[in-house]
């Protein structure tokens, strides 16, 4: 399957990745290779086959509605690149 450069750029946008020109070309060709491999499954007749999103034939267990998590902000924020007054900081967001 051929995958266009524009598509690769668009997908990179969705995935929030950035490539310089040479890497973009490499990515484009290797994505094409992988999609060619994947393409083989198109020959399987899957009419009426229920998709299988999980190997477990089970249903969800539910949790009691209790507050079990204490405030661990200091513990978590020690791992953060940048915080101020308990907030995580990111470059200014313009809505």
């Amino acid at each position: 399957m051929e995958i266009g450069e524009k598509t690769v750029r668009n997908i990179a946008e969705l995935a929030q990745l950035t490539f310089d020109e040479s890497h973009l070309a490499t990515m484009q060709s290797s994505m094409g290779d992988i999609l060619n491999l994947v393409e083989q499954m198109q020959e399987v007749d899957t009419d009426g086959v229920e998709p299988m999103s999980n190997p477990l034939d089970a249903t969800q267990r539910l949790r009691e509605d209790v507050v079990s998590e204490p405030d661990q902000r200091e513990v978590f924020q020690r791992l953060a690149p940048e915080t101020l007054e308990g907030l995580y900081l990111v470059p200014r967001v313009i809505e």
Binding site: D65, E69, Q72, R73, F76, Q77, E85, G86
Partner: peptide
Amino acid sequence: RSKIFSGASTRFGAEPNSQACA
């Protein structure tokens, strides 16, 4: 009382990030 997928409190008006668990 707790969040939909975690045991952190849903109380309104707490100190920032004091009710955000892993």
